[in-house]
Amino acid sequence: MSDFRPEPQRRPDWAALVIAVFLALVAGVMLWDSARLADLGGYSGVGPASVPRVVAYCLLGLAGWTALAAFRGDFPEREPQNPSPILWIVAGLAAQLMLLHIAGFSIATGILFAFTARAFGKRNLAMTLPIGIVFAFAVWVIFAKLLMLHLPPGPLEHLFFPGG
């Protein structure tokens, strides 16, 4: 996330223009997809492609409206953003996603915990990481062992519950 500054008046709001383009793209994909659908409307006359088409046209209209608003500078001012905490959280979620089935719930989620804590100012990973893993492991024991929720186990879980 880059640093957004409020644009001076009467200049196009480029970020909002990007949104308009994005909306138009979504609409385009929907129209393309619905064109490929067989028309199985049957007796109703309204087939599987009808509703996506209507939604797509509305999105196109909204894209135009957004572009107009962007040129007129109608969008509200955005608060300046700090990119690094955002990246830490996204990295934490991505790490959990990738490690979940390899390292197991506790370790993967412990990393997410520590990264999130870092994003909010607890910078010492050497402290937060163990806390996160122990906490996640306690959660795992409660939910996976007592409540029989299926949370992927990994080396740590197998160490304490062999065979589980």
């Binding site: 979620l93 991505a94 996603l97 719930f105 915990f113 520590a114 959660v139």
Partner: peptide
């Protein structure tokens, strides 16, 4: 830091518990 770390922990726990697929976690992200 602890509050939001905990929220994200439990939010992902709920998603994983309902459907432990990487795809679902990817959608969450």
């Amino acid at each position: 830091p602890w509050l939001y770390a905990g929220i994200l922990l439990f939010a992902t726990l709920g998603t994983i518990g309902a459907n432990p697929s990487s795809f679902e976690l990817g959608m969450l992200l």
